[in-house]
Amino acid sequence: MDVDAFRTVHAAGWDRLRELTGRRDLDGAGADELVVLYQRTATHLSLLRSSTTDPVLVDELSTLLARARARLTGTQRASWRAPVRFATRAFPAALWRLRWWTLATTLLFLVVAVPAGVWVTADPVRQAAVFGSDETVRRLVEVEFAGYYSEYSHVSFAGRVWTNNAWVGAVCIATGITGVLPVFVMVQNAVNVGLVGGLMVASDRAELFFGLILPHGMLELTAIFVAGAAGLRVFWAWVAPGPRPRRQALASEGRAMVGVALGLVAVLFVSGVIEGFVTPSPLPTAARIGIGALAELAFLTYVAVLGRRAAAEGETGDVTDADAGDVAPVRG
């Protein structure tokens, strides 16, 4: 192919495409012409790539077509808008919608943990049956429980508990469709906390137990309760989809609850930082618990203020309609 002759023949069309691409406003005729010239130039580029090695002209047309394509399809919104929307509307709205489910998982935890603690507190024989010999119990109460929070460096320990708790939360949500596994995770954690707490109380170490659990535990357990609630919400969307088709209801709630899982990663990061740096710190017990209480209050305020407002405006935590795709009309 004679590249110079090819350029001479088609340069006017390329210049016209360049002109239309650079215009701020296009009427209907101009937009139609832009489409035709774009398609024609794309054909020219294909011919050049298959029959010539002129890199300059190929790069020139590739750049022109990229700009024309952006002009035709429009530009995406600034990337920061999506995370801002998620943090200020979608995530808090989803949390607000989960408030009664979260209360239910919280009550489930307490209904299991408190009796478990009372049960193990009442009888040393039960303590031995659960935890082992007297020496094992003594070592757990006097050394291991407190030592757990200072075994690793602050950064390493914070990272460990963060990733572990994020994994537990993700499992609760990912397996929520079963309706069973989130409950199992809640009950398992409640039993563990209740038994250890009961043992510490029975050994006159209640102050140590609550002094080490509460600073990070308030926010951490709240996040786990939310994760369990999110999983059960997905299950309920499958069981009782309402006026929507079951598949559509499950998809909508599933997308919203995946958003909850992502948001809880940030919440659990905060609780991990508190557990890694505040819980084992030499601060007075009241100060450490106060820091944990402030973090919990900030989270609850975030949900109550931003979440209630966004939910009242119709936000559900699902992705936008443009991202969700088209759905069939339903009754109701």
Rank of each mutant, 00 (worst) to 15 (best):
residue 184 F to E: 10
residue 302 Y to E: 00
residue 300 L to V: 14
residue 274 I to P: 03
residue 267 V to T: 12
residue 174 A to M: 12
residue 137 V to S: 06
residue 103 L to I: 10
residue 19 E to Y: 09
residue 174 A to Q: 08
residue 297 L to I: 15
residue 129 A to L: 09
residue 98 L to W: 03
residue 73 T to L: 09
residue 143 V to K: 10
residue 195 L to Q: 00
residue 15 D to W: 04
residue 110 L to Q: 09
residue 210 F to C: 00
residue 262 L to E: 05
residue 54 D to N: 14
residue 235 F to V: 04
residue 131 F to E: 07
residue 209 F to A: 02
residue 135 E to I: 04
residue 276 G to S: 09
residue 2 D to N: 15
residue 88 T to K: 06
residue 295 A to S: 08
residue 279 T to N: 01
residue 273 V to T: 11
residue 162 W to S: 09
residue 299 F to H: 02
residue 15 D to L: 11
residue 325 G to E: 11
residue 315 E to M: 13
residue 38 Y to K: 03
residue 202 A to C: 09
residue 2 D to E: 08
residue 224 I to S: 01
residue 41 T to S: 13
residue 39 Q to D: 14
residue 283 L to G: 03
residue 72 L to A: 06
residue 11 A to W: 11
residue 325 G to V: 08
residue 112 V to T: 14
residue 192 N to R: 12
residue 15 D to F: 05
residue 91 F to P: 02
residue 81 R to I: 09
residue 329 P to T: 07
residue 13 G to H: 13
residue 105 T to V: 11
residue 126 R to Q: 11
residue 236 W to T: 04
residue 165 N to I: 02
residue 220 E to F: 06
residue 326 D to Q: 07
residue 158 A to Y: 03
residue 195 L to V: 08
residue 324 A to W: 11
residue 57 L to K: 02
residue 180 V to G: 13
residue 226 V to C: 03
residue 112 V to I: 15
residue 182 P to A: 05
residue 239 V to G: 04
residue 303 V to R: 01
residue 165 N to M: 01
residue 168 V to P: 04
residue 63 T to G: 12
residue 298 A to L: 15
residue 225 F to E: 00
residue 18 R to L: 10
residue 117 G to P: 00
residue 180 V to S: 10
residue 289 I to M: 14
residue 128 A to M: 05
residue 121 T to M: 14
residue 328 A to Q: 13
residue 97 R to Q: 08
residue 31 A to I: 00
residue 201 V to C: 05
residue 86 F to K: 03
residue 311 A to V: 07
residue 321 D to W: 08
residue 212 L to H: 02
residue 284 P to W: 12
residue 255 R to E: 13
residue 32 D to V: 07
residue 330 V to T: 14
residue 316 T to R: 15
residue 125 V to H: 10
residue 1 M to A: 13
residue 99 R to E: 10
residue 244 R to S: 11
